[in-house]
């Protein structure tokens, strides 16, 4: 089994690195006791869920199985958890309500998208990547991040952004979703099991920025000055 993993890792390093890189912020959250902060508790849940899904995908991919079904399922889960962090951070009730409303709407939309792109769910071998969900998710997340930044500079409650952990998390998410926005719709045609559209290096861009975002998360979490900071 380990040999298969190593072989896959050697063949697809850019796709494999973010899977294991996710462990760094998880360990940091644990070590720094950042989970005592509500937002970072959600981030920890998100990272653990991400690692679990990514690892299963890694395992299936190393066995040359179609893993797209896990990716499709991870889209609504990812949106629910990341938007939940912003729900905690946004202070204006009206924005919170919008965000809350967006969760069931987007979840329903992504389920519809999965069913629409894959009329036969039982056929895992030919399972296709969602067509619109990732783009819509990227747009929504970019909107919440920019809204949070707008509120941050408007209220002036954070004296130094560089030492503020959530700023780094936002920066990571902003870069990740920005890199994904235009590539996501094309990934549907790129990740087909048969007759795929070869995007070349571009299909690796999301993986690179996934690594960048994980590194930024880790920098943010390491800003927690002491284990009791969150208290």
């Amino acid at each position: 089994m380990l040999e298969i993993y190593i072989s896959y890792f050697a063949r697809q390093p850019l796709a494999s690195i973010p899977v294991f890189l996710t462990l760094i912020p998880i360990v940091l959250i644990w070590k720094r006791k950042a989970y005592l902060d509500r937002t970072f508790q959600i981030l920890a849940i998100y990272l653990v869920a991400k690692f679990a899904i990514d690892f299963i995908m890694f395992d299936w991919a190393s066995q040359k199985k179609n893993t797209v079904v896990f990716y499709n399922l991870s889209v609504p889960v990812r949106y629910i958890l990341t938007s939940w962090m912003f729900y905690n951070k946004l202070e204006i009730k009206r924005y919170k309500n919008w965000l809350l409303l967006s969760v069931p709407v987007f979840t329903s939309f992504s389920i519809w998208d999965i069913l629409n792109t894959n009329p036969s769910l039982s056929d895992l071998h030919n399972h296709k990547m969602v067509l619109y969900s990732t783009t819509v998710e990227s747009l929504l997340m970019l909107f919440w991040i920019l809204l949070y930044f707008y509120n941050t500079i408007r209220t002036l409650k954070i004296p130094n952004l560089l030492t503020y952990p959530f700023f780094w998390v936002c920066s990571g998410l902003l870069l990740y979703y920005s890199s994904f926005l235009f590539i996501a719709p094309v990934l549907h045609y790129d990740s087909k099991w048969e007759q795929w559209l070869d995007m070349g290096f571009l299909s690796y861009v999301p993986y690179i920025f996934e690594c960048v975002s994980i590194v930024l998360f880790s920098i943010g979490i390491s800003q927690f000055p002491s284990p009791r900071y969150a208290k």
């Binding site: 500079i153 952004l161 920066s171 890199s179």
Partner: peptide
């Protein structure tokens, strides 16, 4: 591919600009 590359680079540049602007403005 070229169009996607340009669009992605533009988007990433915008993201970097937003982050830098927020830091500077704050």
């Amino acid at each position: 591919k070229l169009a996607l590359l340009i669009a992605s680079i533009a988007m990433l540049m915008m993201a970097f600009f937003v982050i830098s602007f927020v830091m500077y403005y704050q």
